[in-house]
Design a protein around this nucleic acid. Sequence first.
DNA 1: CCGGTCACCTGAGTGC
DNA 2: TGCACTCAGGTGACCG
Length: 283
Amino acid sequence: MPELPEVQTIATDLDEILRGATIRDVAVSFDKIVATDIARFHRLVQGARIDSVKRLGKWIRLALTGCEGPAVMLAHLKMTGQFILGHWPKKDDAWPPHTRAAFRLTGLPSKGDTLFYKDIRKFGRLRAFDLMELDEFLTKLNLAPDPFEMEAADFHQRLSGKKSRLKPVLLDQQVVAGLGNIYVDEVLFAARLLPTVRANTLTRAESGRILKEARRILTASIAVRGSTTNNYQGLRGGGAFQSHHKVYGRAGEPCPVCGHPIEKTVLAGRGTHYCPHCQRSSR
DNA sequence: CCGGTCACCTGAGTGC
DNA sequence: TGCACTCAGGTGACCG
């Protein structure tokens, strides 16, 4: 579901609400959602204080202080994961629909005492680590910096090492973190480059344009709490950036720049939207 | 290294 | 109404 702006919105909200709270109870109702050893997950998380919540690419990172010292919970929402605040169910009450895990907290300002992790499609994953394990995991993940953290020269260098088309390269979280299917299409439209262009053929001006447009679009989206299509709900409702999408989800509609109908194809297995008139392979 | 396909899952929308 | 089919904001594994 979420890409950088949506994850940023969620992490910022969670940080504000959860910072300083303590996790009193943990319940996991779908075991596969926890991708590290589940008994250890409980040991690391139960009783821990939440020190901060931050975004890392499309990951959410909760810094914890538990009985065994510092720990970290990483969450990846994949397509349909959500964090929602609510109330710990009384004895026989059911969990809210699609609840996969729940964290009962003390020290919350209001709005309930429980953080629910919901996930319709069950693709999302929660992990808990001590700091050494985290280091090991992040090394394996090899996550690239996001567009705000990356210099233009570094970005150009990374693209110049890839023979593939721009679409799959920009989706690759080891090349640049945070972009997903919506924002890649939007960024390439703004940068006036076709998604089929080979990444290693770009000039510095072209790669610079991609990075600049990525920052501009992501910033604009964060300012309105991200894009909402189907399932995304932040802690305070959905975002509004979908109404600013120029090509994503607009196949057949006129291009906002030239009026030519927006086309949709499949590239790298993903629906890909573009204007064949405004977007070119070079120049 | 690259591209294509599938797997992981559920639900919404569409067309007959 | 019911059914079959397609598609969905992500990623990882597998194969040629």
